[in-house]
Nucleic acid binder design. Structure first.
Lengths: 186, 186
DNA sequence: AAAACTCAATACGCTACCGTATGGAAGAAA
DNA sequence: TTTCTTCCATACGGTAGCGTATTGAGTTTT
C-alpha cells in the first residue's frame, strides 16, 4: 500500500530553517542539509524558494513577526502589574531554567553583524521591544530618560548574560539573576 | 633590485586570523582567504599550522591571553579608585565611540555556542574577568552576593548592548549609557 | 480517463575549500 | 661554493554546496 505523499509547504521549510539557524547559525543553514533535515531532497526547496537568499529573507520576516507578537503579549499589563510584566520579560530570557527564544535571538543578532538585511530587521524588532518596555517603565512613574535607559539595560542584560559562562564564578545563578532582575525592573 | 623576502611568522598569521575572525566570524576564517589576505598562498599556512583546527586553537589561546592581560590592567586600581576603574571597564566596551575588542569578543562568543574548545576558553576568560571586577566591587564595600551580581551585570550589559540596535529608540545614547554605567558601578 | 497542476528527485556544471605532496626560492651555516 | 634550513607556491584529489534543467510521481480538475 503506497502511502499518500506528505507535502511540505513553505511555512514548514521556514520553521525547520529557523531551528537550524538557532542551533548552527546562518552559516549552518545550508540548502542541502536543510533538505536532509526534512527528509527530502533540494528539488522541493527550489520549488518553494527562489534561492538561499529567499529563504533567509523569509526566515527573518518570520522571526520578526514572532518576536513582535511575543513582546506585545509579554508587556500587556493591567495597571499595577507593570513591574511583574517587566520581571516576566526578563525571566523569559534570562532564567537559568527558561531560555526560550535565546538561541535564535543570538543567531540572528550575530548574523546581523554581517548582513545589512538582518541588521535592519533586528533594528525594527529592537525598536518595538524597547518601546514596549519603555511604556511599562513610564507607567511605573519613571521619567523619559530613566525609562529609556532601563529598557536598554533590560535587553542588553538578557542578551549579554546568554553569551556568558558564569557557572565557575557563581554557584547560585538563580539568586544572582533574581537580584539583577530586581535592580533593573525597579 | 629584488627586495628581501618578507617572512611571515606564526604570530603574524594568528594576528591576521584574529582580524578576519572579528569581522567575519569563525566560518569566515578560511585557509585560502586568510592566505590571500596576507598576500601569500596556503603553502605557508601549512608550514606553520597542521590544519585549520590548529589555527583555531592558536587564535583562541591568543585571545584568551590578551583578554586576561587586559582585564587585569583595567581593574588595577589604587584604593579609592575602584569605581573609576569599573566605569572605565564599562566605557572600554560600551561607549558608542570606543568599542575596542567588541567585534572579536562577540565572534568568539558566538563560536563558543557551537564549539566546545572555544566554550572552555570563554569560560576561563569570564571566570577571570568576573573575579577581577568582583574584587573591585568588594573593595567598594559591597557584600559577596551583591559584588557577584554586579560583576555579572556589568559584563552582561556590555556584551548585550553591543548586539543591539538602539539608535531609533533613543537619540542620545551617550547619556543613556552613562546612566546605565553609573547604576551598575554603584 | 486524460490533462493540468503541485511538489519532489536527480543529474549536471561550476566554484569554494581543505589537506597532501612536491618542488622552488631565499637565507643561513659549513 | 655547497649544503642545509626555513618558508612559500603550485598541482592535485576529494568533498561540500549552490543553482539550473529535466523528469517523475501524486493529486486535483476537466
Amino acid at each position: 500500500m503506497k502511502s499518500a505523499r506528505k507535502v511540505l509547504d513553505r511555512p514548514a521549510w521556514i520553521k525547520a530553517a529557523s531551528e537550524i539557524l538557532a542551533e548552527h547559525g546562518i552559516e549552518g543553514l545550508r540548502v542541502e542539509t536543510l533538505a536532509k533535515y526534512l527528509r527530502v531532497t533540494k528539488g522541493s526547496f527550489y520549488w518553494h524558494f527562489k534561492d538561499r537568499r529567499d529563504l533567509h529573507d523569509a526566515v527573518l520576516t518570520h522571526w520578526k513577526h514572532g518576536r513582535i507578537i511575543d513582546i506585545q503579549k509579554q508587556t500587556r499589563a493591567e495597571p499595577g502589574q507593570e513591574i511583574a510584566a517587566l520581571l516576566h520579560t526578563i525571566e523569559v530570557y534570562a532564567s537559568p531554567r527558561s531560555r526560550r527564544g535565546i538561541p535564535i535571538e543570538l543567531a540572528v543578532r550575530d548574523w546581523a553583524r554581517r548582513d545589512a538585511v538582518a541588521a535592519r530587521i533586528v533594528e525594527e524588532v529592537d525598536t518595538e521591544r524597547l518601546a514596549c518596555t519603555y511604556r511599562l517603565f513610564v507607567a511605573c512613574g519613571l521619567d523619559d530618560a530613566e525609562a529609556k535607559a532601563r529598557s536598554v539595560m533590560l535587553y542588553a542584560y538578557v542578551f549579554g548574560v546568554s553569551l556568558m559562562r558564569c557557572e565557575r564564578f557563581a554557584s547560585d545563578l538563580t539568586a544572582l539573576k533574581t537580584w539583577i532582575a530586581e535592580r533593573i525592573a525597579h
